[in-house]
Design a protein around this nucleic acid. Sequence first.
DNA 1: CAAAGATCATGAATCGTTTCAAGCCACGCT
DNA 2: AGCGTGGCTTGAAACGATTCATGATCTTTG
Lengths: 332, 332
Amino acid sequence: MPRISIREVAMRAGVSVGTVSNVLNRPNLVAEATRERVQAAIGELGFVRNESARQLRQGRSRTLGVVLESMANPYFTDVARGAEAAMNTDGFDALWCTSDGSVAKERRCLDFLEEQHVSGVVITPVGLDQGRVAELHDRGLAVVLLDRRTQGGVCSIRVDHVAGGEIALGHLLDRHHRRVAFVTGPLRPGPVQDRYTGAVSAARRAGLGESAMTTLVHREMTPTAGKEAARRLLDLDPLPTGVFCANDLLAIGLVNELLRKGVKVPAEICVVGYDDIELATAAAVPLTTVRQPRHELGWSAATLAMAEASAPEEHEHRQVVLSPALVVRESA
Amino acid sequence: MPRISIREVAMRAGVSVGTVSNVLNRPNLVAEATRERVQAAIGELGFVRNESARQLRQGRSRTLGVVLESMANPYFTDVARGAEAAMNTDGFDALWCTSDGSVAKERRCLDFLEEQHVSGVVITPVGLDQGRVAELHDRGLAVVLLDRRTQGGVCSIRVDHVAGGEIALGHLLDRHHRRVAFVTGPLRPGPVQDRYTGAVSAARRAGLGESAMTTLVHREMTPTAGKEAARRLLDLDPLPTGVFCANDLLAIGLVNELLRKGVKVPAEICVVGYDDIELATAAAVPLTTVRQPRHELGWSAATLAMAEASAPEEHEHRQVVLSPALVVRESA
DNA sequence: CAAAGATCATGAATCGTTTCAAGCCACGCT
DNA sequence: AGCGTGGCTTGAAACGATTCATGATCTTTG
């Protein structure tokens, strides 16, 4: 099956290739009769524009790369949908990659995106050093960092997780819990660390001693890890009465396991989550949690990237910080 | 910033463009000294291959499109990871799209993939008619249908959901439940309908009358819908003692809401889910469910697509059917 | 020593599109 | 009649990589 190019279309419609291209890209320049003839030829032959050729010629591409940390966490997929929505309204396409938290895979993603000539990248960086950012930037790519602090030079959009941590632990303290625990994944610099910092600061402000807050670190932030966390938690003596989990998946696993062990939530132990994913509402005990504006996060990130990609000259880098908010349900 | 092309590299290394291309693609044809000089130039200039130009020239592309129904359901993301793993081992790249169950968006995805010149498509079709499949096929694309029956002409890989439905309801019947319910999303032809068919057939075989199984249809298959389903379920009179949910998310929402209403699972009502997502293990009541080989599903689909894409001539279309299996935990 | 290989390097042609200077034509105006 | 104008169309030159017939240089061999 021979591939149909603009050439065949031109032949069939009895016009030049230039005219076909005009029909495709600037239809108003073409006389109506001609336009219709060309459209017809396109339909009959089943012509599909070759995006590679188009990009090659144009230099730029209306495509953005998005590198997410994982698809397993609904938080990320919600962010992704926000980004996708923004791109669709502006006629951009997205190339999705997941780094799965691995530096090597992240590098592979970026290489792939660069070869694909995306005009910008939205990324939740795992092992991304300033050097690589600068490199991408030098090559003319718009770069937007998601949920990572930056010291200028790039656009970034993040949620104030220190505030989030304060809100979460603050809520427990307001309810007079005096022995608390923080359940988390690896404390790498970034969102998770910030939540910890916020929690610590809230504890300190409430006059709690160092030892009043136990931190349980797990390798992952999954429901399964939450389940394990519940077991470790129950071994603690004295038993904390308030638990702040670094994300909702952890919290859900933890609450479920506590219930199974006969520990009542919130009567005996209160739990606060983080993210406010859909499942938080439908959980066994509807989860009190800290809502992140996930959709907006994705949307704004994509919008910033598109703006920079479309007009790199007059673009000024912005660091957007969004605020989290407490959602009180039943678990605390 | 001028983009670095093979030309600049050639100049810098003091060789011709052809040689640089050889270093990139057939390094063994190039003398070691030259090769090293070129590699050095590539490094110094930060050259990145322009994939558009490459594809344009080569005609083919080592890229596969994957169109999934949704990113919100962990089931799909697990399938996706299986597919990605297979592609990575064979040096293929993936372009991800989600149709979100919308026919229009599905069409947009396919248009996008075709313009990107992918060499094959793995798809969970929503509104895909035979015509569109044939069209893609005519244009030389390898097509693999995921989780959809086909009458030859294309590769497909699916799970035997009729068997799955039978297993699920069969399990409830084996445990002597005589009033049962099937909770589901829209009964469109496909996996969901098949599960229903399986359930009905199991019921019939056990000699249950038509009215012994109530079917509750919801618009979505989310935990939130499961929550609603619980409310509707409790209105039923007589109350079913066994419930089969068309996926785990529904089941989880349903179980959680039942617990909240003080209904004991499995003591008063037994629940069987479908999919065996990670959350099934960590649920409030660990879920008895029907496991699908998700990873294998994705892996095999990608493998089939790559095989067809690499050697279209000698390729024979295959219809693979995988078997689901019951995983007994605590909910039933 | 001439001829035949072997080994590498070259550079022009090519992929399918966009872009743009140039051309054509019909029309109205002076 | 001559000229300008506006509306449409044309065709050739890019874009950056790959490919391949050709050539250059060096080795081997009878």
